[in-house]
Design a protein around this nucleic acid. Structure first.
Lengths: 330, 330
DNA sequence: TTGTAGGCGTTATCAT
DNA sequence: ATGATAACGCCTACAA
């Protein structure tokens, strides 16, 4: 910047004014400065701007697992919106470790991000909550219930509705023994379980729903499925609570040579490409993850622009797509 | 930091020395400072450290498409290594737009990243090359040939070998009319085409390989597959040049009700989960993407630590996994 | 061993 | 309309 000022024969403050579009600049000086900027290829240092101005135009994205295609889509949606607005994204991957969540939030705070979008590995880890408490700017939570965080915006998915429809569909086909292989104890899982129970409740049924919760992994899916199928009264339909779990469930079913839907009906949450490419196509509870990212970015941007505006909660819909993976029980 | 200094009754420089592990600090002062740091929850401002010290401990990751699961895995591998070393990742998504590549590189430069890992949307876009030229620190290219960038490290995949094996396998089954539905004109695609031709060449064949290049998208895969199959002499085997393309190819085949492998043999590059979950499982050219990310991070870190060390090129292997999606032609 | 002071690249304030 | 200057938070010579 000093070089630009020298070349243009003006003070550094004038260069600054030209660069930041200050109104009080004479056309002649503006021209001189821009010429020098062009000639020297000058671009202002965002680090120094951040230090001086207090805003870094960057947001931190704390994510539990970037290799999960659904979360990758959320990142895509958010990145797109934020970049349009001149923000950069700092990304960290917590790999499902609650303590990494906390550490990553702390690092982002040290880097003075203007805001945070967070997909937590745990809703209760005290280290994470206190780290989030120290954050200056606005914060958006992705699909988590953290009552302590009264000052955060939240983007939720209405898992319950989609799940209720899905399980209701199985019940209407005549299934009375349904296995739900669910993920870790986080909001999406809880909401799905609620939805499944609601479907049973609507029909006055109180028995017949077997729930096996566990990690959000293929291993859990496979083991839990094996477990369910080796019981004295194995379920006639299985619902996988997420894409990684689905993979494991499918492995288990394939290994046992079970035919879908003749021998067993199968559904899954999180509609990924795989579901429509399989034969038969697999029924799924679906939602728009890219949209979730966009909405998260929008909520953040609003509060970034007017810090006084209150935190908001947006709930995105889910829906059940019936496909040929279900049939009446044998 | 000033507050810490006051509370501990020492000068700010002493706080700085304690925080950065300077050797010449008396134990008593160290204790006092740490106590104050603890009490106030002080954590140094990385922005100011970066401005002052010239290193931000951040690296930029310019990626062509984060929603591609393979690239998400690369990010995962790199993020893990870099975080271990105290680096943060700035992520941007170019969505296949060469000009966004350039702009994203420029922004990262303005943010003073210490280094760059780049998966380019184009190998020749002048705007991108000149933006990369202006980068101060080391740079790692992911699976691209950019001869102009003599000062960058490169992580390559040996697509050619895997492809040669795959096409060789089809030839050995008796196929003499093979369709290769390839992606955009970038290194991976070129290497795959070279590999396919090499397989033909090894057997003294000069005819029978139909190549349709296009975008790296399901739409292209589907259209190209339709095109190939409606020719007077349709191929008896099809190789999809990447996961997105594969999706489209599969849709085309399913829509036509073709059975795999009875009616047509099918292979794909980029071994994703889908391939082993389908029935029949789909043969694929496979590689380790997480490892690619780790290696990229390692190459970057080495040059970050010793800026004088020369750029390196690492080639990771690919291999062909034969599965039941192939049979002799009818 | 510890304190003082200058500067990293900006911009807002004040004076001209 | 433009220029000089202080300050953002930190680190490192240099001085004590």
């Amino acid at each position: 910047m000093r070089e630009v000022a020298e070349r243009a024969q003006v003070a550094m403050s004038s260069v600054s004014r030209v660069m930041s579009g200050h109104p009080d600049v004479s056309p002649v000086m503006k021209r001189r400065v821009l010429e020098a900027v062009e000639a020297l290829g000058y671009r202002p240092d965002l680090l120094a701007q951040g230090l001086r101005g207090g805003a870094t135009r960057s947001v931190g994205f704390v994510i539990s697992d970037i290799s999960n295609p659904l979360l990758a889509q959320v990142v895509k949606g958010a990145e797109n919106r934020l970049r349009e607005e001149g923000y950069s994204i700092l990304l960290s991957n917590s790999e499902g470790e609650p303590l990494l969540d906390a550490e990553n939030v702390r690092v982002f705070t040290q880097r003075r991000v203007d805001g945070l979008i967070v997909s937590l590995a745990s809703e209760t880890e005290p280290a994470t909550l206190s780290a989030l408490d120290d954050v200056e700017g606005p914060c958006v939570l992705l699909d988590r219930d953290v009552p302590e965080m009264t000052n955060a915006s939240v983007v939720l998915a209405d898992h319950q509705t989609g799940m209720r429809e899905a399980i209701g569909y199985l019940l209407s086909l005549g299934h009375r023994n349904i296995g739900l292989i669910a993920g870790p104890v986080l909001r999406p899982n809880r909401a799905r379980i609620d939805g499944a129970r609601a479907a049973f409740g609507q029909r006055g049924l109180s028995e017949g729903l077997e729930i096996v919760s566990g990690a959000f992994s293929a291993e859990h899916g496979e083991r839990a499925c094996d477990d369910l199928l080796s019981r004295p009264e194995p379920p006639t339909a299985i619902m996988a609570g997420g894409n990684q779990i689905f993979t494991g469930v499918l492995r288990s079913l394939l290994r046992r040579g079970l035919r879908i839907p003749e021998d067993i009906s199968l559904l899954t949450c999180d509609d990924i490409e795989l579901t429509t490419l399989m034969r038969p196509p697999i029924g799924a509870v679906s939602r728009d993850s890219v949209e979730a990212g966009r909405v998260a970015a929008d909520l953040l941007l609003r509060r970034l622009r007017s810090p006084e505006s209150p935190p908001e909660t947006v709930t995105l819909k889910t829906w059940f797509a019936a496909r040929e993976s279900c049939a009446p029980p044998r």
